[in-house]
Design a protein around this nucleic acid. Structure first.
Length: 305
DNA sequence: CATCAGACACCTGTCACTGA
DNA sequence: TCAGTGACAGGTGTCTGATG
C-alpha cells in the first residue's frame, strides 16, 4: 500500500489506493462536489489569467503574426497553459485524449477557447481576426459584421478596417524595398557601362568616387554597390586579372540579378516606375525556360479525344 | 425620361473603456 | 500611461422606387 506523504493527501485518500475511484466518488459526493466545482472554476480562472499575461499567440495583432497564427498552435498553447480547461474541452467534445484533438476537432475547440479568452481580455483576438478576414474578403455587409461582432463571433468593422490599413502599409513598405533594390541595381549597372565606355583606352580602370562623381550615371548607392561587386570579382579572380574583365563580369551579374517578378508588373502598369523597365527581369531562368520560350502547337480539340 | 427622396452601406473621427 | 477595442455621430455615395 502507498503511504501518502503530505497531510492533504492523507486526509483525502484515507486508505484508498484507487485514485480514479476517489475522484469519481468526490464528484458524486453531495457536499464535496459543489466545492470541487468551485475549485475547478478558480483553477480555470487562474489558468486563463496567467495565460493571457504571457506572450500568447492569441494576442497577435500585426499582419505577419496573424498570418502565422493557426488553431493547432493556439490549442497547443491552451493545452500547456490551461490544462484543466483543455481537459474540460476534451470531455465536452467527447474526446478522451489530446491525440484525438486534431484536424476539424481542434479547429472546433479553438473558437470556444478564444471567445472565452477574449471575454477576459478583448485584445486576445487572433482567432476573431482570422474569422473576420475571411468574412471581409467574402464581401460581408457592414451591418452583418456588426451583428456577428455582437454575437462574439468576429471583430467589429472598425477593427477589421484598421487591420486592412496595417496590411496595406506593410505592402507599401515592401514596394519601397523593391524600388530601392531596382534603383541600386540600375545605378550600378549604368555606371559600370559608362566606366567601360569612357575608360576603354586607359591602361587601368579608375573607379574611385572622386573620379566617377562627374559621370552622368553616378549615384552614391549605385557606386557603393558597384565597388562591392567589383571587389568580390577581383578577389575571386586574383590580383593579376584585368580589371576590365572583372567589370564585364560585374555587368553580367547586375543584368542577371533576379529582382522580384512583381517589379515587372509594377513597371508595366505604374507610370512613376516605368523608367525602370530595363533593369527588371522579365522571365526568371529555370529548368524549363527553353521549352517555354517555344511557341506551342495548336491542336484541334476534336483530335485530342 | 429626369428628378427627387428615402433607404442603405460604409467611411471617418472622436470618445470612453479596459487590460497590460 | 498606452494600445486595442467598441460605440456612436456625422457625412458621402449608391441604389431604388415614386412622381411629374
Amino acid at each position: 500500500m502507498r503511504v501518502p506523504r503530505d497531510e492533504q493527501t492523507k486526509n483525502l485518500v484515507i486508505a484508498c489506493e484507487n485514485w480514479r475511484e476517489v475522484s469519481n466518488a468526490i464528484l458524486k459526493h453531495k457536499e464535496l462536489a459543489p466545492v470541487i466545482i468551485i475549485a475547478i472554476c478558480k483553477a480555470v480562472f487562474k489558468e486563463f489569467s496567467d495565460y493571457l499575461k504571457c506572450d500568447s499567440k492569441l494576442l497577435a495583432t500585426n499582419p505577419d503574426e496573424l498570418a502565422r497564427f493557426s488553431n493547432k498552435l493556439f490549442m497547443e498553447e491552451i493545452r500547456i497553459h490551461c490544462p484543466v480547461w483543455f481537459n474540460c474541452q476534451l470531455g465536452a467534445s467527447g474526446l478522451s485524449s489530446k491525440e484525438e484533438a486534431v484536424g476539424g476537432r481542434v479547429n472546433s475547440m479553438a473558437p470556444s477557447s478564444s471567445t472565452l479568452a477574449r471575454l477576459r481580455n478583448p485584445q486576445a483576438s487572433a482567432v476573431h481576426y482570422s474569422i473576420s478576414t475571411i468574412l471581409f474578403h467574402s464581401g460581408i455587409k457592414h451591418d452583418d459584421l456588426n451583428r456577428l461582432n455582437g454575437l462574439g463571433v468576429c471583430m467589429s468593422p472598425d477593427s477589421i478596417v484598421r487591420l486592412q490599413g496595417k496590411m496595406n502599409m506593410q505592402l507599401e513598405g515592401k514596394v519601397d524595398i523593391w524600388r530601392s533594390a531596382i534603383e541600386e541595381n540600375r545605378g550600378a549597372l549604368k555606371l559600370a557601362k559608362e566606366v567601360l565606355q569612357k575608360q576603354v583606352a586607359l591602361p587601368h580602370l579608375d573607379v574611385s568616387k572622386q573620379h566617377l562623381e562627374s559621370y552622368e550615371f553616378f549615384s552614391t548607392k549605385g557606386h557603393e554597390s558597384l565597388i562591392t561587386l567589383l571587389n568580390e570579382e577581383v578577389t575571386k579572380a586574383g590580383a593579376n586579372v584585368n580589371a576590365t574583365d572583372c567589370m564585364q563580369i560585374v555587368i553580367k551579374r547586375l543584368e542577371g540579378t533576379k529582382l522580384p517578378l512583381y517589379n515587372r508588373v509594377i513597371t508595366k502598369y505604374l507610370q512613376p516606375f516605368r523608367q525602370l523597365r530595363d533593369v527588371v527581369v522579365r522571365h526568371m531562368p529555370h529548368e524549363y525556360s527553353k521549352e517555354m520560350s517555344q511557341k506551342s502547337d495548336s491542336v484541334s480539340r476534336s483530335l485530342t479525344t
